[in-house]
């Protein structure tokens, strides 16, 4: 594991290494190094299994984190590869040629975050949200509560009181 990490740091500029537990490490690599690294890991290091890929929205830094979680079933190790891309329409290279199910992940990320994966099969077809016309909902600026308040109707007659405010009204309104 240590040697593998040394190779990744040396060859692919991996940084921010976070060892979560035995056999599970997360690290960040620059975007251009992601595909070479994944290819290398799959071909030469035994990381044959793509567990998941997904995005995390860091809206405050104006970037998306894309995480690829690769697994080596022989050594029972997981590598979490993080990379950061811009939030404003910047796409990511597709890995659909490497794994059969990568296209599904990429399709979902296109729909939920608006991250483009040029060349990925059926990437523009709706996955879960047929007929959705709002912004990609997993982006953090999408406000679920506001959406539900506008779309659905609340049950009439509901009201609640904050205990401290209510006690002020009742016990010491003038203070």
């Amino acid at each position: 594991m240590e040697q593998l990490l040394d190779r990744i740091i040396a060859g692919f500029e991996a940084a921010d290494i976070e060892k979560r537990k035995d056999g599970q490490v997360f690290f960040t690599v620059p975007k251009p190094k992601v595909l070479p690294l994944i290819n290398h890991l799959k071909m030469f290091e035994g990381f044959r299994n793509l567990i998941l890929m997904t995005a995390v929205d860091w809206i405050e830094d104006n970037q998306f984190q894309i995480t690829y979680l690769l697994n080596n079933p022989d050594t029972k190790t997981d590598l979490g590869i993080r990379t950061f891309i811009g939030r404003d329409g910047e796409g990511m290279d597709s890995i659909h040629e490497l794994w059969g199910h990568a296209a599904t992940f990429q399709r979902e990320m296109k729909e939920m975050f608006g991250i483009g994966f040029p060349g990925s099969p059926r990437v523009d077809e709706p996955f879960l949200l047929e007929g959705w016309d709002d912004i990609p909902p997993m982006r953090r600026e999408f406000d679920t509560k506001k959406y539900s308040e506008e779309t659905y109707f609340p049950r009439p007659g509901r009201e609640t009181h904050d205990p401290a405010t209510y006690m002020k009204q009742k016990l010491y309104p003038n203070d």
């Binding site: 509901r158 009201e159 609640t160 009181h161 904050d162 205990p163 401290a164 209510y166 006690m167 009742k170 016990l171």
Partner: peptide
């Protein structure tokens, strides 16, 4: 929801 209830007074230590 927290609602006022008849017969329960707001007092110290009890919001009513």
């Amino acid at each position: 929801d927290l609602v006022p209830v008849q017969g329960i007074e707001t007092r110290d230590g009890d919001s009513g």
